[in-house]
Design a protein around this nucleic acid. Structure first.
Length: 277
DNA sequence: ACGAGAACCTGTTTGC
DNA sequence: TGCAAACAGGTTCTCG
């Protein structure tokens, strides 16, 4: 489900609702997530206070008050559902982990496909942790610009679409926002990644930042099952220019092309063959 | 070493 | 209507 803007939206929702609060009771109802939860998961988290909530790529990092760090990745279909005090319905079939907070709020990790994961590490282990090691630059960092992007794409013989989907190239992009960023940049998803240099790299870097920033401002893209932490819907899906718009007229002024859907590395790509070169 | 494709799992939509 | 195939926001493994 969630790419960088959706994860960032969830992070902001969590900060508002549970940062600074303590886990009172933790229930791992179904431990066989993409990476199995350890048997002592609940015990290790229970009683701890959430000191800080960060995001790196599509990972949420909950820093606990004892030096542990809780990783959450939502995978394809993961959601964090917040239930206010006194609204305690029995957990649904796919609510695999339930956290009860000290103020009565419940956070439920709901993930029917179980591509998501939760894991515990420590502050000390964090910099070298396998989840984070090897990630590419954060596109919303100040330092992310044309030369940065050119450097990570250099020599890559893979299509630009596939390169941008690789978390080791740029961290946080996913299938929707790659298509959208390439459209804004006027670059073909089929172009060899290594050919993006100079002004093209500059424009692509700016397009990536812009589409992510706009999407965060809109609260992310809500598809069939995505709800942001507060339970509201994001509305960026109404602003998609090419994603899921096969056959529609290209929105570029003066372009009479139509949006095409192709399959690259087993994922759908949407683009305008007319104005994306 | 690198890139393409399949696999992981479940639910929904599409097509015959 | 019924059933099967295709498809879905991600990551990781295998194979060539």
């Amino acid at each position: 489900m969630p790419e960088l803007p959706e994860v960032e939206t969830v992070r902001r929702g969590l900060i508002a609702r549970i940062e600074g609060h303590r886990f009172m009771r933790v229930e791992a109802r179904r431990p066989d997530l993409r990476i199995p939860l350890p048997p002592d998961f609940a015990t290790r988290v229970q009683g701890r206070r959430i000191a800080r909530i960060e995001r790196r790529a599509k990972y949420l990092l909950l820093h606990l008050d004892d030096g542990q760090v809780l990783f959450i990745h939502l995978g394809m279909s993961g959601r964090l559902l917040l239930h206010g005090r006194g609204r305690n319905e029995p957990p649904g079939k796919h609510e695999h982990v339930v956290f009860a907070m000290d103020d009565g709020t419940e956070v439920r990790f709901d993930d029917h496909r179980r591509f998501g994961l939760m894991a515990l590490t420590t502050e000390a282990e964090l910099p070298s942790h396998p989840f984070l090691r090897g990630l590419g630059p954060e596109p919303l960092d100040e330092a992310f610009n044309g030369p940065t992007l050119e450097a990570v794409l250099k020599g890559k013989r893979t299509p630009l679409k596939a390169a941008l989907l690789d978390q080791g190239v740029v961290a946080g992009l996913g299938n929707i926002y790659v298509s959208e960023a390439l459209f804004r940049a006027g670059l073909s998803p089929r172009r060899l990644a290594g050919t993006v240099k100079g002004p093209r790299a500059e424009k692509l870097a700016k397009s990536i930042r812009a589409v992510l920033t706009d999407a965060i401002a809109a609260g992310g893209s809500s598809l069939r099952d995505y709800v942001q932490a507060s339970g509201e819907l994001g509305y960026f899906q109404h602003r998609w220019k090419v994603y899921d718009r096969e056959g529609r007229a290209c929105p570029t002024r003066g372009c009479d092309g139509h949006i095409r859907r192709i399959v690259q590395s087993n994922r759908s790509t949407f683009y305008c063959p007319r104005c994306q070169r």
